[in-house]
Design a protein around this nucleic acid. Structure first.
Lengths: 258, 258
DNA sequence: CGCGATTTTGAAAGATCTCAACATCTGTGG
DNA sequence: CCACAGATGTTGAGATCTTTCAAAATCGCG
């Protein structure tokens, strides 16, 4: 069950169309401008380039087990992964979604505090932890960007706490759909274009603190109310994004949370 | 309503017995070994020492308003503060508790993303943001410790997401009491010694994603079941901590979740 | 002592979950 | 190409948990 062998990726569901074998140079990397390496100077980048390597994971595959010794850290190049926390009796809570350019792993941490699983096919840009830590110590640009990303994640997780603690099931679903719609939106396409849900109903429930039945019912209710269109169970479109934002309980005047 | 003038602190409820006027030297600082400055060398510390200043806040006073321009960052020297997030209709969710040695503020962030309020009397060790940011850039020990603290906070907020999304009201209350009991426990005192709740029932509700009535009922239920003793509404003791941990739904084999 | 804030408790309403049945989709093997 | 099996998704009905609304008790303090 602990198979982490290098597996051939199934077709990339993230739309980038890139498989690991076709990526190589940092300068041509699709996440070059947002990942942990984004503030590195050319010479710093070449050091990173020399120690990095790619790995791919099929949908559903474990990437990190809780309690694992953390031998590597990595950036998500493409695909979607989920960070989860669970209780002994099986209740689980997804505590973060990892999208392209997000960072996995904790410099300075010996053991992984959470599970990470591939949701779609995932390609990672990996570094062994020790060399990476040494690099952090000597590369302020890297350390600075890592802090920045950690603080962003912290803000995002605090926003999610408001959702988990205080929002209704309908607001939770609307919030999630608005989140996925926003990050799926390709510049140049109309904002009402349909988008793909990478998560099953059960995963959505785990992310939102709901059961899968409640997720399904609330999606049906939003459709019945004309807030969303459901082309197939995984393909959604939003005729009026502001209306969805209102259903989500967000202040429409505020920029979309994080 | 935006009064942040320097106010005389009411008696310190945190038990340290120190008021800001009696603190001065970093070398004698009670949070010297855990705060953001804890890894600084003597010469680095003396730079910090020259630009720091103390401020105190009375219980209930706002420390930071959401949207404020962040002119300073600070370490909590004593007392308890709460980070909160709220919706337009008044629903609020406490997303973090700030205890002594915790850090307030975001280097690199122009505006505060959340409200922070003093719960008890609070003493802060403040720095203006700009000079502090310059110091980070030139002091790897400071930057490193800040990253470490941010990652710890991120882990803690992810643990809290499991509580908010998946735990029952009883488990939530048990978790909070276990958390406060643990951090209130003074080494040398018996673990069954009573401790003080710094939060009102309403604040506990806001932290746990419950109403204040549910908080009150679950505390009564835990008392009726002999899990806790309630000396006064704010003074609790726990005869068997492992039993409380079990009620909290935590794996008793695991170290108390951060 | 008396007032406002806090806390407790009760009863009913409401939201979500649980259990169950059925529908739909997808990939596989006949 | 179709039938089938397993995974995923939908819907219903009743149970359960938490909230809401209301009243009363208690605490802290001037």
């Amino acid at each position: 069950m602990n198979d982490r062998s290098l597996s051939r990726a199934t077709p990339d569901l993230n739309g980038s169309g890139l498989l690991s074998e076709t990526i190589g140079k940092c300068s041509a990397c699709p996440i070059r401008h947002r990942a942990v390496c984004s503030q590195c100077a050319p010479d710093e980048l070449s050091v990173l380039e020399s120690i990095k390597y790619y790995r791919t994971f099929a949908p559903g595959q474990p990437i990190v087990w809780r309690g694992d010794r953390t031998e590597h850290v990595a950036s998500v190049v493409s695909g979607v992964a989920a960070i989860s926390q669970s209780m002994e009796d099986g209740r689980t809570q997804m505590v973060g979604l990892l999208l392209s350019s997000d960072f996995i792993g904790r410099p300075g941490r010996e053991f992984a505090p959470f599970d990470v699983n591939a949701v779609t096919a995932v390609t990672l840009c990996c570094f062994r932890r020790r060399p990476f830590e040494r690099l952090i110590a000597t590369t302020p640009n890297l350390a600075h960007r890592l802090l920045e990303m950690a603080l962003d994640e912290l803000d995002a997780s605090r926003d999610w706490m408001l959702l988990l603690g205080r929002k209704t099931a309908r607001e939770k679903i609307a919030s999630l759909l608005a989140l996925i719609a926003r990050r799926s939106h390709v510049t140049g396409q109309p904002k009402t274009a349909p988008f793909e849900l990478p998560l099953t109903r059960e995963m959505m429930g785990n992310y939102l603190g709901l059961t899968l039945e409640t997720v399904s019912r609330q999606i049906s209710a939003l459709r019945a109310d004309g807030i969303i269109n459901v082309d197939s169970s995984r393909a959604i479109s939003v005729p009026d994004m502001n209306r969805l934002r209102r259903e989500a309980g967000d202040d429409p005047a505020m920029p979309p949370g994080h």
